[in-house]
Design a protein around this nucleic acid. Structure first.
Lengths: 104, 104
DNA sequence: TCATAATATGAATTTTACTTCATACTGTAA
DNA sequence: TTACAGTATGAAGTAAAATTCATATTATGA
């Protein structure tokens, strides 16, 4: 089903390597939220958030639950939680003095 | 040392979410390699690989060992190995039918 | 010390991803 | 059955990152 053509690993990391999507993930750590609510809390346009939510959804980082005309998004904690732990550990161990230089 | 300014998480994922850098990591899974060797095996310019190696190094994903005028790069397996496992598991579980749509 | 092989660097260009905008879709209640 | 709130979408514009190219650096052996 997945071809190397699209390289899911790359997409996995690219999806997470975006500021706004990271903000969404961080917000959803406090619990599920409606799309508009996310946009408001983060102070971004509704359509921008919608684009990013689509991407997060496609990559399986969030789930969605329709509720009338609303859509309630929640975090896929099974992936996100251990991933965050791993990232923290790596950064603490290897990046204390380096990462400030390692990218824009 | 690390400020939110630079957001190390984002950089972590951005660094990994790049095709060429992923190729380098994959190659280094077979063992340490000189910079030129990497460029040759991957069929890319020396300077391009050098730029990417710098980024991987800064983010702590590879180590380097000078050897005369050469520099031998090797994988930081402590981070990369468990990370790969986690990514594979996630993709298998959540992305079988989705990730082909989830990004360019 | 000079020449050379190996690698790194900076800046300009090219490519890719993000954002905005206008609009379309989808349920629901009046 | 229409009006509306909530959300999604595509395409155009904008911003950011990757690549190339020319050149610099560095260690080494003649």
């Amino acid at each position: 089903m997945i071809e190397e053509l699209q390289d899911p690993h790359r997409i996995f990391f690219k999806t997470l390597g975006n500021q706004k999507r990271w903000e969404i993930i961080t917000l959803l750590e406090d619990g599920p939220r409606r799309a508009t609510e996310i946009a408001e809390k983060l102070g971004h346009e509704q359509s921008l958030i919608s684009h990013h939510l689509k991407r997060l959804l496609m990559c399986g980082f969030v789930h969605v639950q329709p509720n009338g005309t609303e859509r309630v998004y929640s975090l896929n904690e099974k992936t996100i939680q251990p991933l965050l732990k791993m990232v923290h550990r790596h950064i603490e161990t290897y990046c204390e003095k380096k990462c400030t230089e390692c990218g824009p």
